[in-house]
Write a protein that binds this DNA or RNA. Structure first.
Lengths: 150, 150
DNA sequence: ACTCAATGTTGTACTGTACAACCATTAGTG
DNA sequence: CACTAATGGTTGTACAGTACAACATTGAGT
């Protein structure tokens, strides 16, 4: 092994820098595009839609966020009428969270316009390049350290 | 063009989701790894090192941050002894920012340990895959919307 | 010389987040 | 069964990061 691992450090440096750059911008960028739904809210709502409802604890575990953070986020989403809490009849500690109709609608709008933005941004890419890039990202994120599953 | 642009939407959806997931985690992840230097501080210090010193306004423009944000960030970095402000003799409005010795040292430490982390995370990747992934990320970020150059 | 632009700092406010203390409820054990 | 422990959630508090607007200082252009 050479000093920089046989030239692997070049690409690694770039990957590090570019992922970091992206991360630094993403929140603000998302906020500019969708002032009505932050990146965090968007992902929480998406998760709710994917799962067809889940508990606050599940969200906390999935996103590695504190339960208090989730509690307040969900509180805000509820106040905005995007989410509703249903008491679980079997376990009265639990509130099952569901998208409201309004939440579903807003999520759909934002999802669509995000898709359009990504489509535009990736417009010049060939099909195979898109597929490889997607695959690389999956692989990269799958290797996330302990407890950072998404 | 079919409804979903000839199957391009699959990968696009994945790219969107995975980039977003990464962005959501990056800050907290960086903070866990390096409690002594936030992701933002790290990038500011890096920029200073790259450029060999620059003005607060340059940082603000480069990172699309408000000048007040930069002012306070730099203030904190200065208080921590990582950065020093030198009055520009030609223009007394300007402070040229430079890494201190301590700043250089800390930056080096964090940079190294980040490199190690990324190396580990990408350990199973082939050379060509690393290169392609790096290339894709560059290309992707180069296509960032207006004013989001890094 | 006067006005205008550029550089920064400070006051204020909001979001996202964590941690710790707490309440309510359920589960496990002697 | 009764008590203790674990689980689910909320609330108090604190901090980082950020923006916007008002301001002070300094330099530039007519």
């Amino acid at each position: 092994m050479t000093e920089n691992e046989s030239g692997r450090d070049g690409p690694i440096e770039i990957i590090q820098r570019e992922m970091t750059a992206f991360a630094r911008r993403a929140r603000a960028s998302a906020a500019r595009m969708h002032p009505e739904l932050s990146l965090v809210s968007f992902t929480l709502l998406s998760h709710l839609e994917d799962r067809g409802g889940c508990r606050a604890t599940d969200l906390a575990a999935y996103y590695t966020l504190d339960k208090s953070t989730i509690s307040r986020q969900v509180g805000a989403l509820e106040k905005a009428g995007l989410v509703e809490r249903r008491l679980d009849p079997d376990d009265h500690r639990v509130q099952v969270l569901h998208l409201t109709e309004r939440g579903t609608g807003l999520l759909k709008g934002v999802t669509d316009s995000r898709r359009v933005a990504f489509r535009e941004r990736l417009a010049g890419w060939s099909g195979p390049d898109l597929e490889r890039f997607a695959e690389y990202l999956l692989r990269y994120n799958a290797g996330a350290p302990e407890g950072e599953v998404s």
